[in-house]
């Protein structure tokens, strides 16, 4: 059976026997699913746990990691079976993780990186206007929260240290919004999905910020499993996620995350991030700024 056929069959529920059953009874240890502070909303952990336990048929432990680095290390050291990470960590960790499912925001596997600043600072239209700022990054392994603006600076022949007055990491995308909203940072870089959701929810911090520039689209942060995980378990998780919108708990989870669906992921969706990573590594020539940020 071809891989794609196999997955399609799993989604349609036509796979025989084992895939329709729960986790192996011999396995007493829970299924460990990692999340980072990046995507957490109120009640999201509980929603994840309820959904996964119901669909995997066994105990599920949600493990919260404070950085992508910690999440990758936990996957590599078999401390977790799966995790929701950013596209950049996935590109970095391709050697030991594999794509499982791709959240669909507005039904699409894409998102953008936003440069944001104080809402009162209306003149800033480009990253060039942010020179001399105190700049807030999310995580050194975040695509939208680090990689995109740093590569953009490369195109200007700058580094964060040379371009900004000061920088710091919040290790949380919504905290980047808070840092800019409070004035702790003059500007910052944030996942467009996060900023839009916060704004939609009338977050006080988000309402005190405005978008300076939006990047071109990149692959949405994927859900990955470690490569040494039993393929049946990988498939079962994938099947559960891809059919999430078909049951009540799945829809509740999607609603809490402001997502519409989970998609079958494709490697090509992360080519853009891989290209940025190569620029950062110096194995790829700088990309023109206009090819990174489109407009506000």
């Amino acid at each position: 059976m071809q891989r794609r056929t196999f997955l399609a069959a799993a989604v349609s529920g036509t796979l025989p026997s084992a895939f329709g059953q729960g986790l192996p009874q011999s396995s007493k240890s829970p299924f460990r699913f990692g999340v980072t502070d990046v995507f957490l909303h109120d009640g999201a952990i509980h929603q994840w746990q309820q959904f996964l336990q119901a669909r995997l048929g066994g105990p599920v432990q949600i493990i919260q990691k404070s950085s992508y680095q910690e999440a990758l290390e936990a996957l590599r050291s078999d401390e977790m079976e799966a995790a929701w990470i950013c596209g950049f960590p996935y590109v970095v960790a391709k050697g030991f993780v594999r794509l499982c499912a791709q959240p669909g925001w507005h039904g699409q596997p894409w998102y953008r990186s936003y440069l944001i600043t104080s809402a009162r600072r209306t003149q800033a239209r480009s990253i060039r206007d942010l020179r001399g700022d105190v700049f807030a990054f999310d995580d050194p392994l975040s695509n939208s929260g680090y990689l995109v603006p740093v590569v953009a600076l490369r195109s200007l022949g700058q580094t964060p240290q040379s371009f900004f007055r000061g920088t710091f990491y919040t290790y949380s995308l919504h905290k980047v919004v808070e840092a800019v909203g409070s004035g702790l940072a003059d500007s910052g870089t944030v996942d467009g999905y996060i900023w839009e959701v916060l704004t939609q929810r009338q977050s006080q911090a988000a309402l005190k910020t405005r978008i300076v520039a939006k990047s071109r689209r990149y692959g949405f942060p994927p859900i990955v499993t470690r490569k040494n995980l039993a393929i049946e378990t990988h498939i079962r998780l994938q099947s559960a996620l891809l059919s999430a919108k078909n049951d009540v708990q799945g829809r509740a989870l999607l609603r809490s995350l402001d997502l519409q669906d989970f998609l079958l992921p494709q490697e090509s969706w992360f080519d853009g991030i891989a290209e940025l990573a190569e620029v950062l590594d110096g194995t790829h020539p700088p990309i023109p700024l206009s090819a990174i940020y489109e407009s506000a």
Partner: peptide, 20 residues
């Protein structure tokens, strides 16, 4: 650690932040 955000959170855990 040059953890500006951490320091900010530590301070505002007592004083309250300027966002809320």
């Amino acid at each position: 650690q040059d953890n500006v955000w951490g320091a900010y959170e530590t301070l505002t855990s007592v004083t309250g932040d300027q966002v809320i």
